[in-house]
Nucleic acid binder design. Structure first.
Length: 557
DNA sequence: AAGTGTTTAGCCGTGT
DNA sequence: ACACGGCTAAACACTT
């Protein structure tokens, strides 16, 4: 499934640095500055991310949309800040129920925002009883300690916090929030009273601004106060290349979204006009006033979703699906199509199927579990893999591993079974012949699925209900004392002992160099001289050097 | 010729 | 600094 991946340390790092960067410019006595200095941003952001992550996974299990598009913002906000479910909110009043903790310096009381409107002379700590809490104790204690009692009447209708933006899931996008507007040049969306209220709230210590807290807003404010955001956006597909190789901010945009933090003004502004459905994909409109915006998905994700939705597709059909769902990808633009083809070719997650019934090319599909080739695994939920992908991938990996193990065991069992079958016509067949076994195993494996070269074979016992056969197998193994003649890691192309012995001049008429016990052949030979590591190079070489004392022995050998 | 599939190379951003 | 993922560009071969 497709969705942005969660960022990890990088987010908190950027936020922390942003915190320093932004608030260095603020008045040291500013209430906002004081509160923010004591706020554990890392924990705060991490908590939000984890909360949304859990929620997203829950939604994946119940993919149906909970609310209509028009209610997405407020329901998402409600889910984030209130223990009340989004569905309940929609059914009841379409207004978020925000619980607040009233702190008057000595007492703490839980109440609702509606009740709060009637309260006077109280400091307000906005918090949540479930999914979100401003856990920094300092923020709650110091607000009442440092500031005189004041009145905070927060309109519930203002409760469309930008923070309700699910940083981790592209399912809901915040509308332009009045509280953010100070930093987004969106003042046109507010009337003068709202702007004045906003300004006063932020200046008098009203913590409701935290609901709309967005660090990047301050970043933008601090770094680019005079810059109008949209002008920063360059679309390399529109010919405005920012970098020599054609990469543009739009690429960063995709990464920013995927990593769950909105550090760029263009991202925020784009999303302000964007509505994401619960499944995160259908009919997504990345259009802006000045043109389509690059979707925050990799080509692999786009292709994957197209194939998941439609099954097998030709390359041209994949083009069509992508261009239909994402206006950014124009059907007449060949550059991204090249990337799509490139992805199809190099990504083992995609399988080239049969030839297309009409026209050139092949049908492409997602590699199913049985032929799911190795794919780079995300470690510790890295930013490149979505949770859904991780779940699917984990299942796939587990299934693949089990399947491979099962296949190997079957093959070994078959090979071992063939080894254990005595040939009544030739007693010598009871003795393991490594060359023959390797040939046999090679034939078996080649016949089963893939070309392999069996360089050596180590017989192994396989659980068998037939006790007698087991004993027979064990006896054979014990008799032959068959050992792996070399370590796999030592040689890319292992050389057999026979070759080594021959090249060392150890093989000549009248002598038998073998790792097998001649007594097992019925040969009566004197005690062998062990050729081991002490008298031959290679500690793994340990075969026995027999002197054949009779012509019959020589012939048998 | 156009579309398709493969391969190589380079750049960028991020994480270690 | 290095590895890696992702993206982009380009070249080339093959098929329709």
């Amino acid at each position: 499934m497709i969705g942005p991946s969660s960022g990890t340390g990088e987010v908190t790092e950027s936020r922390a640095s942003s915190k320093r960067k932004v608030f260095d410019d603020l008045d040291i006595d500013s209430p906002k500055r004081k509160i923010f200095d004591e706020l554990d941003i890392d924990s705060f952001c991490e908590e939000i991310r984890q909360t949304n992550r859990k929620r997203y996974l829950q939604e994946l299990e119940t993919p149906e949309e909970l609310v209509a598009t028009s209610n997405e913002i407020i329901t998402d906000a409600a889910t984030l800040f209130s223990p009340i479910s989004a569905q309940e909110i929609v059914e009841e009043s379409q207004v978020a129920h925000l619980e607040v903790l009233l702190v008057d310096g000595t007492n703490c009381t839980w109440t609702t925002m509606s009740e709060l409107e009637q309260q006077q002379n109280l400091d307000v700590l906005v918090t949540s009883s479930s999914s979100l809490s401003l856990s920094s104790s300092s923020s709650s204690s110091t607000t009442s300690d440092r500031h005189p009692p004041e009145t905070y009447a927060v309109e519930e209708t203002n409760y469309q916090p930008a923070m309700s933006m699910n940083y981790w899931q592209p399912g809901v996008v915040p509308a332009a929030s009045p509280a953010n507007s100070n930093f987004q040049q969106n003042k046109g969306t507010m009337n003068n009273n709202q702007q004045q209220q906003q300004f006063e709230d932020q200046e008098n210590g009203n913590l409701s601004w935290l609901l709309d807290f967005k660090l990047d807003s301050f970043i933008e404010a601090a770094d680019d106060r005079s810059t109008v955001g949209p002008t920063l956006i360059k679309d390399n597909h529109c010919g405005n290349k920012n970098k020599p190789n054609g990469r543009s901010h739009s690429s960063n945009y995709a990464n920013d979204i995927r990593r769950g933090h909105e550090n760029s003004s263009m991202y925020r502004q784009d999303l302000n006009q964007t509505t994401y459905p619960a499944n995160g994909f259908d009919n997504r409109n990345f259009s802006r006033s000045n043109g389509p915006k690059k979707p925050p998905f990799t080509y692999t994700e786009l292709i994957e979703h197209a194939l998941q939705e439609r099954g097998e597709l030709t390359v041209s059909a994949i083009y069509q699906w992508i261009s239909e769902h994402f206006p950014y990808y124009k059907s007449n633009d060949d550059r991204w199509k090249n990337s799509v083809r490139h992805n199809l070719s190099i990504n083992p997650h995609f399988r080239k199927g049969s030839k297309a019934p009409h026209g050139a090319g092949h049908l492409w599909a997602i590699a199913n579990r049985s032929d799911c080739r190795p794919r780079p695994l995300a470690i510790n939920g890295s930013a490149t893999t979505t949770p859904m992908q991780q779940v699917a991938q984990n299942e796939c990996d587990e299934s693949r591993s089990n399947k491979i193990i099962s296949e190997i065991m079957d093959e070994v069992e078959a090979a071992t079974a063939s080894i254990a079958q005595p040939n009544p016509e030739d007693d010598t067949d009871n003795i393991l012949n490594p060359v023959t076994l390797e040939d046999s195993a090679e034939q078996i494996l080649n016949g089963i699925k893939r070309e392999v070269e069996v360089q050596y074979l180590v017989p192994m016992m396989v659980a068998n209900s037939d006790h007698e056969a087991n004993q027979q197998n064990q006896q054979i193994v014990q008799q032959t004392e068959f050992q792996c003649p070399f370590k796999e890691s030592d040689f890319l192309n292992p050389v057999s002992k026979e070759v080594v012995a021959e090249e060392c001049g150890l093989v000549s008429e009248g002598y038998l160099v073998t790792d097998l016990n001649p007594n097992a052949f019925g040969l009566n030979v004197i005690d062998p001289e062990i050729i081991g590591s002490e008298n031959l190079f290679g500690e793994e070489l340990s075969f026995q050097f027999y002197e054949l004392t009779s012509p019959s022995q020589l012939q048998s050998a």
